[in-house]
Design a protein around this nucleic acid. Sequence first.
DNA 1: TCCATATTTCAACGAATATTGAAATATAAT
DNA 2: ATTATATTTCAATATTCGTTGAAATATGGA
Lengths: 117, 117
Amino acid sequence: METSNAVAALAALAQDNRLDVFRLLVQAGPEGMPAGRVAEKLDIAPNTLTFHFDRLRVAGLVTVRREGRSMIYAARYDSMNALLGYLTENCCQGRAEQCKPAAREKSRPIRRGEQMA
Amino acid sequence: METSNAVAALAALAQDNRLDVFRLLVQAGPEGMPAGRVAEKLDIAPNTLTFHFDRLRVAGLVTVRREGRSMIYAARYDSMNALLGYLTENCCQGRAEQCKPAAREKSRPIRRGEQMA
DNA sequence: TCCATATTTCAACGAATATTGAAATATAAT
DNA sequence: ATTATATTTCAATATTCGTTGAAATATGGA
């Protein structure tokens, strides 16, 4: 992933409504969810939602397909993975461990044989 | 990390100059780099750079300290890690593998009358 | 066909953003 | 004390952003 794409993806996610939308679509799984149901669940006006879906779509983070009267949006897991890869590569000197401070909180258990950075 | 913090961090990185600044600081290591050197390396006006440093600092992504006449900015690896954690947790259903194309089941059209997740 | 449902398009608006130039501040050197 | 260096502050500006309401489009059902 190139830097310009990373900026686009970050910008797409850097808005509370859009981040909520994306998280909901991730939860919904690969089959996606109709726009109306997203609007309902997150209490966002349909036209506002169209605006945000568009941002996510242009940034490559979601796909759309029509199913009858509904437009079904789905998260693009591959794009999210590419973004995580970019951030790990460029903002952690290539290793996620680089980002972990020595005295890290107990956000997750430490597995056997794991390096402590 | 809470969603509002994630949005703040994403917004801080969602700008080409700022992403460049952060990447440079990550490369620079824990000791950081003086503002002037960042300005020089990235060819950004000093006052513009102050604006961007501020955004990164408020978002918790960098620290500053004075060293003589210089202000030395350094990347906060822990914050970056927290952001990566948030994204992995909330946008990949808890596993980075979820985001890899190979790991997800092939998407199929939804049949009429089929219930949505 | 006519009507209801689902979503998008469009114009408008205030708010936030990124950049610039000029002036201010803080520290160091002479 | 004066001058130079490093950075910030401030006001101004153009641009982009997020939301709203009204109207348009697309599909399905009676």
